[in-house]
């Protein structure tokens, strides 16, 4: 295979990595905020968080991508493809991050929260000093799964015109009519990314483990 191909796939990989990083960072921030809403003592916030999660979790990502890429310009919001797709992915995966955080928080016994509240800690202090540190460990692997899903999900960006790894593989295939080789190569790259993230998640999990 010509070196131009590796060059092209390399550029695709760079986009994939950038998109994964941006979308995951966005999903983490938004997902944690949503989770805070969902466990907050304020009913309207709880309802809003729950509605968001229900809506985004129940629409296929590809449908969301098409809606955002071709729908937003219809209401006058034309942003670059990469930004639109990264934003959509962040919004979509935030719903999953929210549920991971929420179920992680649920693993902390109720008595821990009651003790913190009884000592006069506010809701946010209680989250920060008591709940989150004790729930981190149970969140690491599920968050790793979200990361893997998100990484592999970025390949859907090719369907709406972002020339990331899969998109470049499609271009290469059109050019050299050798689909197996380019897709085998991209498969290897995806597997390498996801395996690595699995290992890293394991490391982090041990690091945040509670000493008992």
């Amino acid at each position: 295979m010509p070196t131009g191909v590796l060059d092209q796939l390399g550029r695709g990989l760079l986009l994939t990595v950038e998109m994964t990083a941006l979308a995951f960072a966005g999903a983490l921030v938004l997902g944690v905020l949503l989770a805070v809403c969902r466990i907050s003592p304020v009913p309207p916030l709880r309802l809003a968080g729950a509605a968001y999660v229900t809506a985004f979790r129940n629409i296929p990502l590809l449908v969301l991508l098409v809606l955002f890429v071709f729908g937003l310009p219809e209401v006058g919001l034309l942003y670059p493809l990469f930004a639109t797709v990264a934003l959509t992915m962040a919004l979509y995966w935030a719903a999953f991050v929210c549920e991971v955080v929420r179920s992680g928080v649920r693993t902390v016994p109720r008595g821990q929260i009651e003790a913190a509240r009884a000592l006069g800690l506010t809701f946010t202090q209680c989250l920060r000093h008591v709940v989150i540190p004790q729930s981190l460990r149970s969140m690491v692997q599920p968050l790793g799964n979200v990361f893997i899903g998100l990484t592999l999900g970025t390949s859907l960006a090719a369907a709406v015109g972002v020339p990331e790894l899969t998109g470049q593989a499609q271009l290469v295939t059109l050019k050299y009519d050798n689909p197996l080789t380019s897709f085998a190569l991209t498969t290897v790259v995806y597997v390498a990314i996801t395996l690595t993230s699995g290992v890293i998640a394991g490391r982090i999990e041990r690091k945040v483990a509670i000493k008992r």
């Binding site: 309802l47 729950a50 509605a51 968001y52 999660v53 229900t54 809506a55 129940n58 629409i59």
Partner: peptide
């Protein structure tokens, strides 16, 4: 059950 309705409406 009460969550499904606003979510559905939003969608």
């Amino acid at each position: 059950s009460s969550l499904a309705i606003p979510a559905l409406l939003l969608t």
